[in-house]
Amino acid sequence: MMTKFKRSLAATVAVLGVLSVGLGAAQADDSAKDWSTIRIGSEGAYPPFNFLSPSGELQGFDIDIAKALCDHMKVKCDFVAQDWDGAIPALQNGKFDAFIASMSITEERLKQIDFTNKYYNTPGALAVAKDSTIADLQPASFDGKTVGVQGSTTHAQAVEKFLPDADEKVYPTAEEYQLDMANGRLDGVSDDIVVLSKWLESEAGACCKILGSFPADEAIYGKGAGIGLRKGDEKLKKMFNDAIVAIRADGTYKQIQDKYFKFDVYGK
């Protein structure tokens, strides 16, 4: 028994040693890699930040920012459409090298992946029907009311915290909760204020109005939207961070921002 235990222990130590070397090599590979081609994942279902054109091409603010960053870094970027719920595992497993899809930098996500500095930061808000009797964002006003949100988002967490008595209904995409809201199946919906504002400007969003915005709770919303990266890809992280600073300094960021918004989305 002792012999088997010792052999098992030795084998375990050997495996751990190999894994340790492998992890070290992976980090060293990032330092040596030229990153001449970068695969970028994005959701494609969160307008105006990211969406799919009729031909299936990824477009939107996130995508234009990504292309500007790639141009500054002088690298070739290939884009991959990725469902939101599977984004972090897909990034970890190497389906793409960076995820640029309005993902907030939160402590919980930082346990799994790394992030660049923010590239924008806008508040979360809640919209209701134009004829709604709900007058404010007080918890009592939403007692027994149904609020739609996209799953696995900071906005879902905000509803849980700020409207604990509401019945939260989770959807895979923003487009799906918007459809239910327009058809009168929900009492309210929560999302980024820009996403809601753009939706309300459309024919589909003519049903509704913004009731108000939630407090900027960093424990929920994090430090803004950043570019998701694998742990250990430090060279790539620096490349992106330097490029974010550069496109803000040379006016490229503002040109892209003004294409989609009438106000500064970078935040403080």
Rank of each mutant, 00 (worst) to 15 (best):
F5E: 12
V13C: 13
A14P: 09
A14Q: 10
L16S: 11
G22P: 06
G41P: 06
E43H: 14
P47A: 08
F49S: 00
F51Q: 07
F51Y: 15
F51K: 04
P54E: 06
S55T: 14
L58D: 03
D62H: 06
D62K: 04
I63S: 01
D64E: 12
A68R: 08
D71A: 12
H72V: 13
C77N: 02
V80Y: 10
V80L: 09
W84V: 02
G86W: 15
A90V: 06
N93V: 07
N93Y: 13
F96S: 02
I105C: 05
T116Y: 10
K118P: 06
A125I: 09
K130A: 05
S132I: 00
S132P: 08
T133C: 08
T133L: 11
P139T: 00
P139L: 03
S141Y: 05
V149A: 01
A158T: 01
E160C: 05
D165N: 14
D165H: 14
D167E: 14
D167K: 15
E168P: 10
Y171S: 00
E175C: 10
E175V: 14
L179M: 12
G188E: 02
S190P: 06
V194M: 13
K198H: 15
E201F: 08
E201Y: 09
C207F: 13
K209C: 07
K209F: 11
I210H: 03
G212L: 05
S213R: 09
Y221K: 00
K231M: 11
K235N: 08
K238C: 10
K238L: 13
N241K: 05
A243M: 08
A243E: 02
V245E: 14
V245K: 14
I247M: 05
G251F: 07
Q257D: 09
F261D: 02
V265D: 00
G267W: 12
